[in-house]
Design a binder for these strands. Structure first.
Lengths: 237, 237
DNA sequence: GTGAAAAAGCGTAGGGGTTGCACAGTTTCG
DNA sequence: CGAAACTGTGCAACCCCTACGCTTTTTCAC
């Protein structure tokens, strides 16, 4: 006898393991875990596009429609797959600064392993269990700073936004063997237009070839900026 | 006689106004400008999903396939629509810090006006003219800091990532009239699970009702953190 | 036990959407 | 004037999500 949770966002209840009680009728041939696992499998192998109800159904030997007995919509499936694929955060070291670095590194690594996670549309504030584990971990680490909860949330937003942005840039610059060739071709096309089109700063950036390299440094760079900024705040309060 | 630009990413050439020269045959009934404008129109009215070749074609009184005479793929269309919709950056004030604030504010405003821009998948480093105008503007403002170009690029990445992340959070918390109702319902569902599931920090955050309010402050907060961080760097060098 | 209720899966169907190919019409160059 | 080039279109193939109604299976209640 589960409570009636009314109109919750798709995937919320299911991700927390709240499934409609079933009393009669044939036993389901599939389980949500199975479906979600298959979704992740496809995502890992062929990217976000490959996660479709049709494909999962075919792979599990069922019709597409059968999926709708387990999941209300594709959106719900995506939420579940996402939360599962995100997994648990690592154990963070002592001290908010090392913790933040570890937290960021772990996410960068996660996005490197599962680039398709970057294609999952952000539906807003995190609400699923694993996502919230990550939030909880960082928030706990930040609680030693002496800042207010509100400030901590701000820092968290800052960090998570940065990681995601960095990862999505790293993704397309790093991946695919022909990335450098492509980049060179783009440069050849772009530079004359930048010169003549009134982009003086960008022109010099491109000519110095600093636009596309040293991405690993950039992660540390931006992170150091953020952490220094937080430091300033801590000192101020 | 335009040069052969080989295999450039979709939308690159077109966005810079390089279109294949045509010499014979009937004049095109449509223009790319027209198509892109229609795409923006649909995006503004019904969101990103509404931007489809089919819809645009129907609206312009042509078959869907006719679109492919103007655009190589949907991806290319999206790139063009995106660049056009981004528009030109505002004039930035003197001083890198006020400039950064103005730059961020302008983007927040842009995302508020055209939320669907947040749904446009990021294909990597910006290469289209208007996008690069924004980059150029901020890069120029940063050039007065005395930092290296590389550092400036890092700062830029930091800022743009932050804006985008902030905007996409603001979007779903702010928009839709039933957002507060929805949020309350989510809270009712979530809090007991947080308490019992080992999320102590989040529980207290939720109970203090600080999770979902004061978003305007958060923009300034995060931005101040970043700028302070940059300040520290400037002082260091 | 036995019948009724509930639930699962399937078939059918429809609505979008993107894309490829062959065709017919139109314009312009040689 | 003929051929080449380029236009839009019709047809068609896919893929995807989703709704409805039917049959079959299971299990609870009597």
């Amino acid at each position: 006898m589960t409570k009636d949770h009314g109109e919750l966002p798709p995937g919320l209840a299911l991700s927390w393991g709240v499934l409609p009680v079933q009393r009669r009728g044939p036993k389901p041939a599939l389980s949500i875990e199975q479906i979600v696992a298959t979704g992740i499998e496809f995502g890992d192998r062929d990217g976000f596009e490959a996660i479709s109800l049709q494909r999962i159904a075919a792979h599990l030997g069922v019709t597409t429609n059968a999926m709708y007995r387990y999941v209300r919509s594709k959106e719900e499936l995506i939420v579940l797959v996402n939360d599962k694929a995100v997994g648990l955060p690592p154990e963070l070291p002592e001290g908010w600064r090392p913790a933040a670095i570890a937290w960021v590194d772990a996410q960068v690594k996660l996005y490197a392993e599962r680039p398709w996670l970057l294609d999952v549309p952000i539906r807003g504030a995190p609400v699923t269990p694993n996502q919230l584990r990550w939030v909880e971990a960082m928030l706990t680490a930040l609680s030693t700073t002496g800042l207010s909860q509100h400030d901590n949330l701000g820092c968290l937003l800052l960090l998570s936004g940065y990681v995601r942005n960095y990862a999505s840039l790293a993704r397309q610059l790093g991946s695919s063997a022909d990335a450098p060739v492509q980049a060179e071709q783009v440069g050849r096309f772009l530079v004359p237009r930048l010169m003549e089109g009134g982009y003086p700063t960008l022109t010099s950036v491109y000519l110095n070839q600093e636009y596309e390299d040293g991405l690993d440094d950039d992660l540390e760079f931006g992170l150091a900026r953020i952490l220094d900024g937080i430091d300033v705040l801590i000192a101020k309060r």
